[in-house]
């Protein structure tokens, strides 16, 4: 079986208060399906607030799903008993988005890294201790950092603690929610190289959420692009960067900053209103900002279809292109 994680028609809705104080439903993740193949790095990119972190939390069953299924190595996580799920968590780990937020302010760094081993009763006390030291070294921290508390380390150091904690139990699958965005480029390179090495040596699989498109291009095997709770494009990384199909992906790539002071300043790629997530438009969700919008876009919600081998896109332009080309 090549698929480690299978996400089927997953939806996560939140009950929120709307503008006038009445209840409304926010479709944070809306009918999302995809697979993560064994040993691949699937990157997830998209506008902030489009539901990437919610999707990650829902896959891990940290957030109740509204509907849909998540299979991990053939087991339906949404149907597992609490105890079984807890045991399975050893194999799937998460690195959260906010480095300081994901550490208990009252737990020292050393203890934080040790906690996963304590929770799953892995190894003897000495083994745990030496593993903590090993992990600190792996992510480039000093053994002395173990005694500090989260407020005594910098953001990047906190992020590395979170990475070390996620690696502690030798997981198979790691969801990394912007793991390197608070690191300087040299440590970022170090961590990305480390994650890539672990993937090669231990056969790890990653779901990698990131905003930095250069990092994604460099690091991922495939890329999924999300917009307002939906996946709008999914393709092999090189293919996506070479030929982005969805207008949103194109806009995204166009607004990525380039590291050249002489390059012209890149204007925000698209204007227009961000659609209200409480009342998504009936047609394509990107329609209000899309330069290519057609009539059909306003009425019919496009589905994610494979327009070319391994290249999926949810946009009315493409079936039309194909139809007209055949």
């Amino acid at each position: 079986m090549t698929d480690l994680v299978v996400v089927e028609e997953l939806c996560t809705y939140f009950q929120v208060r709307g503008p006038t104080g009445r209840r409304a439903v926010l479709h944070a993740v809306d009918n999302v399906s995809f697979v993560v193949r064994r040993n691949e790095i699937l990157a997830l990119v998209g506008e902030s607030g489009c539901g990437k972190s919610t999707l990650a939390r829902t896959i891990l069953q940290l957030q109740k799903r509204t509907s849909g299924r998540v299979l991990f190595d053939g087991q339906d996580l949404t149907a597992l008993a609490a105890g079984e799920l807890r045991r399975l968590r050893r194999r799937m780990q998460v690195i959260f988005q906010h480095p300081h937020g994901s550490l208990d302010p009252r737990v020292s760094i050393g203890q934080a890294i040790r906690d996963p081993m304590d929770i799953h009763a892995v190894g003897t006390m000495d083994e745990r201790q030496s593993r903590v030291e090993e992990l600190l070294g792996l992510v480039g921290l000093h053994p002395d950092h173990a005694q500090r508390f989260p407020h005594q380390i910098s953001g990047g150091q906190a992020q590395r603690v979170a990475i070390a904690r996620a690696l502690a139990l030798h997981p198979d699958f790691i969801i990394a929610d912007e793991p390197v965005s608070s690191l300087d480029v040299s440590i970022q390179a170090q961590i990305l190289n480390l994650l890539a090495d672990l993937r090669a040596s231990l056969g790890l699989t990653y779901l990698f959420i990131a905003h930095n498109l250069a990092v994604v291009e460099h690091f991922s095997s495939r890329v999924a692009v999300m917009y307002l709770g939906r996946i709008v494009e999914l393709a092999i990384s090189d293919e996506l960067y070479a030929r982005p199909l969805h207008p949103y992906t194109q806009a995204l790539l166009a607004s990525a900053p380039v590291a050249d002071p002489d390059a012209p300043a890149r204007p925000p790629a698209y204007i227009g209103d961000v659609p209200n997530p409480l009342e998504p438009p009936p047609g394509c969700r990107f329609e209000s900002r899309c330069p290519m919008a057609m009539d059909i876009c306003r009425q019919v919600d496009p589905v994610l279809t494979e327009v070319e081998p391994e290249h999926w896109v949810a946009c009315h332009l493409y079936p039309i292109l194909q139809r007209s080309s055949t």
């Binding site: 968590r89 959260f96 994901s102 996963p116």
Partner: peptide
């Protein structure tokens, strides 16, 4: 709702451990 509590749930910590220790 804080991430660090979610982090412990993600690690597979039991509820009593989360409540009492964190």
């Amino acid at each position: 709702e804080q991430e660090f509590i979610q982090a412990y749930r993600a690690l597979g910590a039991r509820d009593w451990r989360i409540v009492l220790q964190h």
